[in-house]
Design a protein around this nucleic acid. Structure first.
Length: 427
DNA sequence: TCTGGGGTCCTAGGACCC
DNA sequence: TCTGGGGTCCTAGGACCC
């Protein structure tokens, strides 16, 4: 039989590990990285986990622990993490002709053809990433992606595995699946876990053995596929070419809630500018743009939520077209609400849908205007590439920028910003 | 009085992931 | 005081058509 093992290599506490790369003093102390706007914990060192800091826990919830135990807390530094991520994935790519970058800290690797050397190969991959990039990882191996994910989870959780868990052997896999909660399976979230419990399914082994039609009934085709994958049947292939994206979004919570149309339009103008840049970077144009803004759902204040979708005709990636569309949407949404003033809007965003390749977009009758927007946008990109993000912006973004998110505890952009390069002195 | 059936397309919303 | 951002996929149900 043809055995085609899949490995998932996943960085340990990735964001925290990135922070530690450039500050060895952080190595053995509790460290937490916060989400945008310094909202909640999204990466925790083993020491921070041991202190009970939960994934997604709001920063103000564990403030007491921070003080008492000297937890080092960082705002997220995505330029740093993105750069380190590229180094990790290009190192991993050397180890197999077929791999898929699944997320900022995970890569699937096809290990077909390595036969008895498979485990040595996986160990070598881990050691190389640690040596050449400095990031610790764990590897999970299984006959399907879902099994590789499960194996990776076990490798992380149980030090007995020494960082590599291999579930290709059916006996070993069965042993582990009987002892693992069904909620740990990739694709089984809170709702599905609850519905599975209702029909008496609590362990991964029970999920694997559940009849396919029942799986479909409790969940959808997605759950049915998961069950097959747990049986070792590959349903989800490794995708080595990046599929074309279908939508994209730029959304942010404001550092200071927005109480005037002007504040709101400045934020949306900034988001639309960023969204247009993203589109151009991907060579895409958008057919629909949705503008939304809403109040803080957590603080018990008077709630309001506004969302407006506009068609872009012709589909566009021009900064000017997008900014114009969102400014208009904001204005209409604002005045369309009879009590429009009086709300404090926390979050605003721009969502682009029905993306198509630039060259496939239909031409417009007013080709001249289209061309002008294109040239100006390209010029803005060139200036901003050379002189830094936000070197030139549209006037509609304003100068006060009260909407900007908080990031009070961000580490330097060690690898992507000249002024932040670490200096090493040798005597 | 009697009032079809079946197909496609689109959208909103749910669930999940990292 | 204080709770992220950016994606994917699936389904149900309405609109519309013949």
């Amino acid at each position: 039989m043809d055995i085609r093992p899949i490995a998932l290599i996943d960085c340990n506490n990735f964001y925290v590990s990135c922070e530690r790369l450039f500050d060895p003093r952080l190595r053995s102390i509790p460290v937490v990285v916060l989400s945008n706007n310094d909202g909640c914990a999204i990466s925790r060192s083993a020491e921070a986990k041991a202190l009970g800091v939960k994934m997604g826990e709001p920063a103000h919830h564990f403030r007491d622990k921070t003080k008492a135990h000297g937890i080092r807390v960082f705002s997220s530094n995505y330029s740093l993490y993105g750069d380190i991520s590229r180094r990790v994935s290009s190192t991993i790519a050397e180890f197999s002709p077929l791999s898929e970058i699944y997320s900022i800290d995970e890569t699937f690797v096809d290990l077909s053809g390595f036969g008895g050397r498979m485990l040595d190969h996986a160990a070598e991959m881990r050691a190389t990433v640690l040596r050449s990039v400095g990031i610790p990882t764990c590897v999970g191996i299984g006959p399907s992606k879902t099994m590789a994910k499960l194996a990776n989870h076990l490798a992380k959780q149980n030090p007995m595995f020494g960082g590599i868990c291999d579930l290709m052997d059916a006996t070993m896999a069965d042993y582990c699946m009987r002892r693992t909660d069904v909620s740990e399976v990739w694709g089984v979230g809170r709702q599905t876990t609850a519905r599975l419990r209702d029909v008496g399914i609590a362990t991964v082994a029970q999920l694997r053995d559940m009849p396919l039609p029942l799986a479909r009934n409790v969940g959808t085709v997605v759950l049915e596929r998961i069950v097959s994958e747990l049986r070792g049947v590959r349903c989800i292939d490794i995708q080595d070419v990046e599929p074309r994206r279908k939508g994209m979004a730029v959304t942010r919570s404001a550092g200071t809630p927005m109480t005037s149309l002007d504040d709101l339009q400045q934020a949306l103008s900034s988001h639309a500018t960023r969204a247009a840049q993203k589109l151009r970077n991907h060579g895409l144009v958008a057919s629909h743009v949705t503008t939304f803004f809403h109040t803080n759902p957590h603080n018990g204040s008077r709630q309001n939520s506004v969302s407006r979708t506009a068609r872009l005709s012709p589909p566009s990636n021009s900064t000017f077209a997008l900014v114009q569309a969102v400014l208009r949407a904001a204005e209409r949404g604002w005045s369309g609400d009879p009590s429009g003033n009086g709300f404090a809007y926390l979050k605003a965003g721009v969502v682009l849908d029905d993306l198509i390749p630039e060259e496939a977009a239909p031409a417009d009758l007013f080709a001249f205007e289209q061309d002008t927007g294109k040239k100006l946008s390209a010029a803005m990109d060139a200036v901003n590439d050379r002189f830094g993000k936000k070197a030139v912006v549209l006037g509609s973004e304003g100068f006060m920028r009260s909407f900007e998110t908080r990031a009070d505890m961000r580490s330097p952009r060690y690898t992507t910003r000249m002024a932040d390069l670490p200096v090493v002195s040798a005597r």
